[in-house]
Amino acid sequence: MDHSELAVAQDGAPVEVLRREHGVLMEVDPYRIDKKKLGMWIFIISDACTFAAFLFAYGYMRIGAPVWGTPFGLSSIVNGVVMTAVLLSSSLTMLAAVRAAQTDNKNSAKKWLGATMLLGAIFAALHLREWVRLIDEGWRLFYNPTGGAAQFGATFFSVTGLHLTHVVTGVIALAFVTRGYNQGRYDQGHVETAGLYWHFVDLVWMFVFPLMYLMNAH
């Protein structure tokens, strides 16, 4: 962040400003964070509202339906816990990558970014395995093989599918950031912004796992 200085506004009040090219003075951004990060925060807020709407709709249907599909046994719960552990570990590796990028340790940052991508891919594979198992059992978007509420498939596949899309997109985005960072086109700010997105994906899973898996355990 640039060094700020004090200037006097038209009404005589002191204002903290930044001196730009050609002597132009600009008022200091109140958030004092990188514009990329602020943009990512705005995206995260809007995306959080999207997930909230999905989960609210699911919650109301789940409580409102007299008979609801509960296809998850102990093996699925264990699989879900492993998926949570994998995603939480990927958040930690992302933190290590951001920290390495902040200290200009390029090799370490690349290594941790690679670990994050690998864990993201493992999470996606575990998730797809759960999907395949459910589809094999006959669960579809609009069909419940046990004869209960058909909305289970619609809510489960849409919410977890939306989250899975975010994970896959995150892995692709991290691959681009790692490549750009390696080539010197991107700086530590890009790594931090990508990290912010990745932590958000992890945060959403903290709601998806208990609501979609644990609430539907038999």
Binding site: Y31, I33, G59, L196, H199, D202, L203, F207, P210
Partner: peptide
């Protein structure tokens, strides 16, 4: 549902404050 939502909200709060560094921002 209430218990799980409360625990998930607690987890999310911790993740936002520490992992997403809101604690260290303005």
């Amino acid at each position: 549902l209430t218990c799980l939502l409360c625990l998930a909200s607690l987890e999310a709060f911790v993740a936002v404050m520490y992992f997403m560094h809101v604690k260290y921002e303005q």
